[in-house]
């Protein structure tokens, strides 16, 4: 299965398709950090929200880079379950790479303020919270990208529609407040929580919420792929 993950990542990189989402991500982060300096954790919280559609789109591009017949050849070689898992693993790996870039960017463009007062969080804590926020967004983004991939939607139009609808729903439901917020992965609640001190309970709740959503979306992907080779 690792061989298939490597094969897909190298196909994704060699076709040059990897470039588009990275550029889109950099553009979005550039706009985000162009506004001025912010406290690291707070900035990273917003960065994770901004990156969510980019990560989902990157997943769709990665999964769609392989011709349909090659996907079937890979399926025959490793079996259906591993074929699906390998695609998701490749997307998670590419997503992690983009997250590393996203964590580094604000330091390069001077988008973050170093702690000055005794009440500020140390840089390491800010970085760790930023990584946590991005990691919460990644699985749901990968699952959404998978649901929008050509293997499931079969046409470019439906694919874009699923992607756009998923992103809009995640953001709108997140903005709408606690009543409907649980109907989407906790992107905005995480960003909001990062503006102030986070009690451990909130952290655990947000993590659990994100994991439940990721599990549901990934199960949906696996189920949809069952009838679509």
């Amino acid at each position: 299965m690792i061989a298939l993950v490597r094969f897909r990542l190298s196909g994704f990189l060699r076709t040059g398709r990897a470039l588009a989402p990275v550029l889109a991500g950099l553009l979005a982060l550039g706009i985000l950090y162009g506004g001025g300096r912010a406290e690291p954790a707070e900035a990273y919280g917003v960065s994770a929200v901004v990156l969510f559609p980019v990560l989902a789109w990157q997943t769709k591009i990665l999964l769609d880079a392989e011709p349909d017949v090659q996907r079937r050849l890979s399926l025959v070689a490793v079996g259906p379950a591993r074929e699906r898992a390998a695609g998701l693993l490749a997307a998670l790996t590419a997503g992690l790479a983009l997250i590393v870039v996203a964590l580094a960017v604000p330091w390069l463009v001077g988008g973050v303020a170093t702690p000055t007062g005794p009440g500020d969080r140390p840089i390491v804590v800010g970085l760790a919270l930023g990584l946590w926020a991005h990691l919460l967004a990644l699985p749901a983004a990968v699952a959404l990208g998978g649901l929008a991939s050509r293997a499931i939607t079969r046409s470019a139009g439906y694919g874009v529609a699923v992607l756009a609808l998923g992103v809009v729903l995640a953001l709108v439901l997140g903005i709408s407040g606690p009543a409907l917020g649980w109907l989407a992965p906790p992107l905005l609640p995480t960003a909001r929580a990062l503006t102030g001190p986070i009690p451990p309970v909130t952290g655990v709740l947000l993590t659990g919420w994100a994991l439940v959503w990721a599990a549901m979306l990934l199960a949906g992907y696996a189920q949809s792929r069952r009838r679509r080779a």
Binding site: G11, E66, P67, D68, V69, Q70, R72, L73
Partner: peptide, 9 residues
Amino acid sequence: PERFPAGQP
């Protein structure tokens, strides 16, 4: 397969 997918890098 009937046609090998040759469009790969």
